[in-house]
């Protein structure tokens, strides 16, 4: 039996699960507001707004915990990229997921104490956490305090533009979440990665 690695310290696990739960609330209420209808309300509009605001603030707090945690603990090193090597690494990992995995080939980048994420995970997590989440948070706070948004940007309504940025980044993060959950089933068993995020041990 391979030696277990303690991948997920307590703060990462708490951050991860609160973040995950709040994201589910945000996606549900966000979809409900976007497709709001008098005849078929998914969540009552004012309730959806309240839940969405609360979950959005919680995700923002979580995000600061994530950034500070990565700045001051060893967890931050897993989000560092070596630009020169990444393209080749991505190709290998992509080949593995599309062909190698079905031929039972060994994973090209097995996880170790120094490698928590494979290259595809690393790139997607970096884009999600350092590009789209901040974009979603900034635009979300713009919509929470619309008086700070200017009325027009190059002839386009400021709130309209902010909402488009918010919806598009939210949509990309929703797609990320689906793929993230699916890829978490690729472990020793379909549930082993999920268990790891509860116990901390991989």
């Amino acid at each position: 039996m391979a030696e277990k690695i303690y991948f997920y310290p307590v703060w990462v696990r708490i951050w991860h699960w609160i973040n995950a739960l709040m994201f589910l609330f945000l996606i549900g209420t966000g979809l409900s507001m976007q497709y709001s209808s008098v005849d078929y309300p998914l969540v009552r509009f004012d309730l959806a707004v309240t839940i969405h605001n609360f979950a959005g603030i919680a995700v923002t707090v979580c995000y600061f915990i994530f950034v500070i945690g990565n700045l001051f603990t060893a967890n931050g090193k897993f989000y560092r990229l070596k630009i020169g090597e990444i393209a080749d690494q991505l190709k290998k990992q992509f080949y593995y997921y599309t062909f190698g995995i079905f031929k039972h080939e060994p994973a090209p980048f097995p996880l170790s104490e120094n490698r928590k994420f494979n290259p595809l995970q690393k790139v997607s997590y970096i884009f999600a956490m350092y590009a789209f989440v901040p974009l979603m948070i900034i635009s979300g706070f713009g919509l929470l305090f619309p008086e700070v948004i200017v009325s027009k940007v190059f002839g386009i309504g400021g709130i309209h533009l902010t909402d488009l940025i918010h919806i598009i980044s939210g949509f990309i993060l929703s797609v990320f979440m689906i793929i993230h959950i699916y890829f978490c089933t690729i472990g020793k068993t379909a549930l082993s990665n999920f268990k790891s995020m509860f116990t901390g041990w991989h």
């Binding site: 200017v150 009325s151 940007v153 002839g155």
Partner: peptide, 9 residues
């Protein structure tokens, strides 16, 4: 920057 830009007609 874009937020600060305002064009009125």
């Amino acid at each position: 920057f874009f937020t600060c830009l305002q064009i009125g007609f």
